[in-house]
């Protein structure tokens, strides 16, 4: 069985986001970048499947500038086997990524796609669903548990009313939620070995995907700042304020 894992290089989860002076994008210059945390969980899940003997190969795909190869190497150090880097300078869009992944799935005879439910930079939460759509594959989204038995994947999803368990036929697309697993630390011996793993770099054109961007960013701005709160002495004071100042009573 062959698994494809898609990983995105994003601004590190703990970095305080700053907007550039033109207010057209988030500042990424000299900012710490890391693998999208949901993708890290996807890699971990794929590696665990491989360790259980059910998977022969884990293929990592990433799209972006040369630097995304560093993120791919992290996936290698965790246990992925080889990578395809689609070189691209602009902003990625969910449909574009889905089309690229579909092409690779077709070329590589992939049996299972595991990816993060969303990337923490644009929070789109669309790519997995779109990919399943254009592949006409079953999809299990936001999963917190995965079991692969023979030609089926049993997935558990945390939904409003409790836990939902679905059985999907392979091949299928799975997107990960936070509680699926806790990703391992990549060990230094594995980081060094990961340097020798193969990354094939190609453009979208070389892959045979044509795509024109459909989304246009008009403006990026900070959320409105919350005005300062104040402490009240008692309920009476609260009611007075609600009536006299806020005017809701």
């Amino acid at each position: 069985m062959k698994i494809l894992v898609a990983v995105k290089r994003v601004i590190d989860y703990n970095v305080k986001i700053r907007i550039n002076s033109e207010r057209t994008a988030v500042e990424t210059n000299n900012v710490k970048m890391s693998m999208n945390p949901f993708d890290e969980i996807a890699v971990e899940e794929a590696v665990r499947l491989k360790e259980s003997g059910k998977v022969d190969e884990i293929l990592v795909v990433s799209i972006g500038q040369r630097k995304v190869q560093e993120t791919m190497r992290t996936a290698f150090a965790m246990g992925a086997d080889r990578g395809i880097h689609i070189s691209y300078e602009g902003e990625t869009e969910p449909l574009m990524v889905a089309k690229i992944l579909k092409k690779i799935v077709d070329n590589e005879n992939i049996d299972l796609v595991i990816m993060g439910k969303q990337a923490i930079d644009d929070d789109s939460n669309q790519t997995g669903q779109m990919l399943a759509g254009i592949l006409s594959w079953p999809q299990g989204t936001f999963i917190s548990k995965l079991e692969v038995v023979d030609k089926n994947a049993s997935v558990t999803r945390e939904i409003d009313g409790g836990l939902e368990t679905l059985k999907l036929n392979l091949p299928c697309v799975i997107t990960t939620d936070l509680r699926l697993n806790e990703p391992r630390y990549a060990s230094l011996p594995n980081i060094m070995k990961a340097k020798r793993k193969e990354i094939v770099e190609m453009s979208m054109a070389e892959l045979g995907v044509e795509y024109t961007n459909r989304l246009k960013i008009i403006k990026v701005e900070e959320p409105p700042t919350r005005s300062e709160g104040r402490k009240l002495e008692d309920v009476t004071e609260l009611i007075n304020i609600l009536r006299d100042e806020v005017g809701v009573l």
Binding site: D12, Y13, S34, P37, E40, T74, L188, P189
Partner: peptide, 12 residues
Amino acid sequence: VLDGIIAESTQQ
């Protein structure tokens, strides 16, 4: 050094 890890993210 017998083994080791490097933090791959600020979280790590």
